[in-house]
Simulated assay, not measured.
Amino acid sequence: MYKSILKFMLPVIGLTAGFAHADEFKLKSTDIAHGVFMKNKFEFQGFGCSGENKSPQLSWSGAPAGTQAYAIMAYDPDAPTGSGWWHWQVVNIPAEVTSIPSGNGKLDDKDVIDVSNDYGQKGFGGACPPQGHGAHRYQFTVYALSKKLELPADASGALTGYMVKAHSLASSTIEALYKR
């Protein structure tokens, strides 16, 4: 009997052991918090929105061994598009960088790739849910990457997301909220 229980439990134990590194990788922010509404300064300026279009401060720690670069992605799964809304995708952040200040979301490094957001701009594009649409979730995720990514200059959000997830060693997310 114990052999059959052990036979059943070993795959489960092995599966949970694989997540040990991901639990150590932590994303923090002095500007946003999980489940908390963001301030107006993180709202987009345009598209009927009048915020400051500032990206939040982010910092991370506990990257797994083998991390060669980082990626930051901000996504609204509640946008009424059928495919969500990419607010920010930046990849190939150098491995020695573990924080970014609040600002425009653009990083000054020749290897960093700023992918156009769904507003059609490089860098951060703030929250701008439709008026009266209720609260939207904004998932800010930092990924530890196993290598620097090669992407075409006009990479789509979907292609970028695919490549980031294909080479992710760990990730950590803060899901902030916003409504108008």
Rank of each mutant, 00 (worst) to 15 (best):
T141W: 08
I113Y: 05
G132S: 11
D108S: 13
W88V: 03
S146W: 09
E175Y: 03
W86S: 10
T98V: 00
G125Y: 00
H133Y: 14
V112I: 10
P80W: 09
E175M: 12
V115H: 04
D111F: 09
L145S: 14
P101E: 04
D114E: 14
T81I: 09
K106T: 12
S102G: 03
T98A: 05
G157T: 08
A144E: 10
L149R: 03
V164E: 03
D154I: 03
I113D: 00
W85F: 11
A135V: 14
D154V: 07
P129G: 07
L169G: 01
G134S: 02
K147L: 08
Q121W: 14
I113W: 04
S172C: 11
G157C: 12
N92E: 04
K165P: 07
A144R: 13
G120W: 02
S83Y: 12
N117Y: 07
P130S: 06
A95Y: 06
G82D: 08
A155P: 09
P130L: 06
V112F: 06
Y138Q: 03
M163Y: 15
W85L: 04
K165H: 13
I100S: 08
A127Q: 10
C128Q: 00
H136V: 01
D109C: 04
T160K: 13
S116P: 04
Y119N: 14
F124C: 04
N117V: 07
G84K: 05
V97Y: 11
A170G: 10
P129L: 00
N104W: 05
V164H: 00
A170E: 06
T173H: 06
P80Y: 04
T141M: 01
M163F: 12
G126Y: 03
T81D: 02
L149A: 10
P101R: 09
E150D: 14
A127G: 00
D154R: 06
E96K: 13
P129C: 05
R137Q: 14
S102L: 11
P94L: 01
V112E: 02
S116N: 14
L151Y: 08
G84F: 04
Y119L: 05
H133D: 14
D111I: 10
V115T: 02
L145V: 11
D154M: 07
S83M: 11
L177C: 08
C128I: 10
G82M: 06
F124P: 00
L177K: 13
V115I: 15
V112K: 01
L145T: 08
Y143T: 00
Q139M: 13
P130I: 03
G123T: 02
W88I: 05
S172L: 11
H167I: 12
A95Q: 13
V91M: 02
L151T: 02
W88C: 03
D114Q: 15
L107N: 01
